[in-house]
Design a protein around this nucleic acid. Structure first.
Lengths: 224, 224
DNA sequence: CGGTGCATTGACAGACCTCAAGACGAGTGG
DNA sequence: CCACTCGTCTTGAGGTCTGTCAATGCACCG
C-alpha cells in the first residue's frame, strides 16, 4: 500500500509554506506540548524523538535521519520532542500549507501516508527489541542501527549518543549499556578505540546477538 | 494536524471495494508476509496485532478495538499478523479501491493520515511502558487499557487474553504476569472472582502504579 | 591545576526468568 | 455421574540479569 518512492517527496512540498532551517547539535526542532504548526523533513543530519514522563525520566522513542519526517501528530499539539543529535538541516513545512496541498494533489497524500506507515514500522521494530531482547541484544541492535545511518560498512561509528541516551533509548541504565559495550569489546566483536567511537569488527556475530541468537560471545554458529 | 474526527470514516470508504466480514474468536484477519491486498476497519469486537520472531517467540504489538484500522503497511506485504480475540466484525477495504478513492477525495486521505498518526501514538505509548515500567506497572497499564475497551467504569473486565498473551504483550513471562495480578489482588486494588474476570476496586491506585508512582501497594499518596 | 562531564568497573540488592509442582475449570467419554 | 484429560492459572525455589550506589579514570576546558 502507498508504495511509491519517497525519495522525491521534497519536490511535492507546497512552495509557499516551506523553508529551510539549520539546527545546531542538541538544539530542539520542536517541543512536546507545543502547538503543532509545522512538519520537518530532515535534509541532512539526525535527530532523536523523545518524551518525558511526569517523574522526569526521558524515553527516547527513536532516531531519525535524512528523509524522515518529524512532527507528525494526531492532535493539535506535538506529542513528542525532537532534538538534533548532530548539526542538522531540515525543511520546515507549515501544516496549513500542507493541508491545502494535500487537497490539491492526492499523490502527496499517498506519499505522506507512506512515510507515516514507515514511521509505524520503525516504532514496531523498536517494540520488538524492547519486548524480548536482553541488554546485550538491545545494544547490538542499536549499534547496527547507528552503523546504518553513519553509512560505511566497516567505517567507525561516530556515536551521536552518550551512554545515558543509549540507555534511555533502550530501556536500560547507562551502566548496563557500558557493561554491554565492554562485553562486546572483550568478545572481539567491536572496538572502542576512543570515547564516542565504535568499530564493528564482526558484524555477523553482532547481528546474531541483535537477533537474539544466543549471546554470541562464545563460538557463534553463524561464524563456524 | 489532520485533526478531523474519524467517527465518520465509514461513510468515506469506496463503495465498490468494501465488504463486511465476520471473524471468529482466534481467527486471523491477516498474516504477516501475505500480500497486502486489503485494509480492515474493526466495526465490533477486538483483535491483537503481533509479530513472530525467528526463534518462534511471539510479540504482541497491541490491541485494536472498534474504529481502528488493521493492515496498514508500508510495503507490498503485511508486516504483522492480526487475530481476533473475541468474535469480531470488520469492514474489508481493498487497497486498489482505496487508492483510487484517495485520488478522488482528499478528505479521505486526511482522515487516513489521522488514523495513521493515532496508530503511531499508540505504538509510542507502548514504547514508553516497555521502556520504563516495572512488571507491576505494565500489568496495571494493560488492565486499564482493557477496562477502557471493555467499557464500563466499575464493570468487570472479561479478559480477552490469557496470561501468556498478556506476557507476550508486555515483554514478561506468564508467571510474572500472574504474580503481578496476585499482588494487585492482595493489595485490594483488583478482584479476581474467577478465571478470566478482573474487577478494578481502586482505580486511582491502579493508575498510580501504571504511571510509575511507586508500587501503590502501601498507602498511596493519591488516596490519602 | 582543579573542575566538570562522561565512561568504566565493582559490589550488592532486587526484579525477573526458569523450572517445577499442584490446583482449578471445562470438556469428553465411559 | 464420574473419571480423565487438557489447558490454564497459581505458587514456590533458585538462578540470572539488571538496577542502584559508589569509586575511579579519562578527556576537555577554564
Amino acid at each position: 500500500m502507498f508504495t511509491e518512492s519517497t525519495a522525491g517527496v521534497a519536490r511535492w512540498w507546497p512552495a509557499d509554506g516551506t523553508s529551510t532551517v539549520d539546527i545546531a547539535d542538541r538544539s530542539h526542532l520542536l517541543h512536546e506540548g507545543d502547538d503543532a504548526v509545522a512538519l520537518y523533513e530532515i535534509i541532512d543530519g539526525a535527530a532523536m524523538i523523545y518524551r518525558t514522563s511526569i517523574d522526569g525520566r526521558r524515553t527516547i522513542l527513536g532516531l531519525r535521519t535524512q528523509g524522515a519526517l518529524v512532527g507528525l501528530s494526531s492532535g493539535r499539539r506535538y506529542v513528542c520532542s525532537a532534538v538534533a543529535i548532530e548539526p542538522t538541516r531540515a525543511r520546515r513545512i507549515s501544516y496549513a500549507a500542507l493541508e491545502r496541498a494535500i487537497d490539491n494533489d492526492p499523490r502527496l497524500a499517498r506519499r505522506l501516508l507512506n512515510v507515516c506507515t514507515e514511521e509505524l514500522s520503525r516504532s514496531r521494530e523498536r517494540l520488538l527489541i524492547l519486548g524480548n531482547r536482553t541488554a546485550l541484544g538491545r545494544v547490538a541492535a542499536l549499534l547496527l542501527e547507528l552503523a546504518q545511518s553513519t553509512g560505511g560498512a566497516k567505517r567507525p561509528i561516530l556515536l551521536p549518543l552518550t551512554r545515558l541516551e543509549m540507555g534511555e533509548s533502550l530501556g536500560l541504565t547507562l551502566e548496563t549499556v557500558s557493561r554491554s559495550m565492554s562485553r562486546l569489546r572483550t568478545a572481539g566483536i567491536i572496538d572502542l578505540p576512543r570515547s564516542g567511537v565504535v568499530i564493528i569488527r564482526d558484524r555477523a556475530r553482532l547481528e546474531a546477538i541483535a537477533d537474539g541468537s544466543g549471546d554470541g560471545t562464545s563460538g557463534s554458529r553463524l561464524c563456524a
